[in-house]
Write a protein that binds this DNA or RNA. Structure first.
Length: 249
DNA sequence: AATCTTACCAACCGCAAATCA
DNA sequence: ATGATTTGCGGTTGGTAAGAT
């Protein structure tokens, strides 16, 4: 485990993202503690998993919720309550965190609308403390259009370019880096093989290496994340087995 | 133009469940 | 069978961009 004083927190950097993507592709999206250790990332396994699941996973949709998805979220939430992970399973490409955030925002807005509707303008001062917590409020479905509907996912889910956050229309991010940049970094090394990767994996820094081509990495079917990586009993050793048997030839 | 408010999202935390030794 | 470790989930917080005043 990484020593406590060395553990990094807060926003992930581009380098960390690339590094994590690289190691997850190498070892699979399990054993996060090991990935955290081996990768040299000064992050906890938990943090690595969260970053992968919520941001770096290639199956993620980065577009706004479609009206259909919104409706589904609302229906399932009223049915199952705050079982975000369960709900997320019904919405391919969406994460529990995303849905949870959406719900919070949505319900806050609903609560405000209700507040406005229930409290006449002449008597508005008494309404505030009577509002129940948003999560406990019974949901009343409306037919209103999404308040931030953009028409849904216009991009192919599985292509690296399609998972950018918020700049689907070709915008670039102001805040430093984008997933495009990451994928570009990865793609830069198309000519390099896994052999090179495995030979150099234990050395540092990671930036001397070039990951395998993206199309090799991200082959997965929607809703079948578990098949994203080859079934390797012990990925750490399997890597080197593969290196010697498959990847050299 | 400056300040305040709101909406959104990334990431953390604590806890429980699952897995491993 | 059991204790330790790891993983996953849900709640919460903090930062920031956009909109309102």
């Amino acid at each position: 485990m990484v020593k406590e004083e060395e553990i990094r927190k807060g926003p992930w950097t581009e380098q960390e993202d690339v590094q994590l993507v690289f190691y997850v592709n190498l070892f699979g999206d399990r054993r996060w503690d090991s990935i955290a250790k081996v990768s040299g990332l000064k992050r906890t396994g938990k943090s690595c998993r969260l970053r992968w699941v919520n941001y770096l996973h290639p199956g993620l949709k980065r577009s706004k919720m479609t009206p259909l998805e919104e409706r589904l979220v609302l229906e399932l939430q009223s049915k199952w309550g705050n079982r975000w992970s369960r709900i997320a399973h019904k919405l391919p490409g969406r994460t529990d965190n995303e849905i949870k955030n959406y719900w919070r925002t949505h319900m806050r807005k609903k609560a405000q609308e209700r507040k406005r509707a229930m409290s006449p303008p002449s008597n508005s001062s008494s309404s505030v403390s009577n509002n129940p917590p948003v999560d406990s409020m019974p949901f009343v479905e409306t037919k209103e259009r999404s308040f931030y509907d953009t028409g849904g996912d216009h991009h192919q889910m599985l292509t690296p370019k399609g998972i950018n956050k918020g700049f689907e229309e070709g915008e670039s991010t102001e805040t430093g880096y984008s997933m495009d940049d990451i994928w570009e970094d990865i793609a830069l090394s198309e000519s390099n093989t896994m052999k090179t990767v495995c030979e150099t994996i234990m050395a540092s820094p990671i930036w001397n290496y070039c990951p395998p081509p993206p199309d090799m990495l991200w082959m997965m079917e929607e809703n079948k994340e578990s098949k994203m990586f080859p079934a390797i009993t012990d990925p750490f050793f399997a890597c080197y087995d593969q290196e010697s048997s498959n990847l050299t030839g």
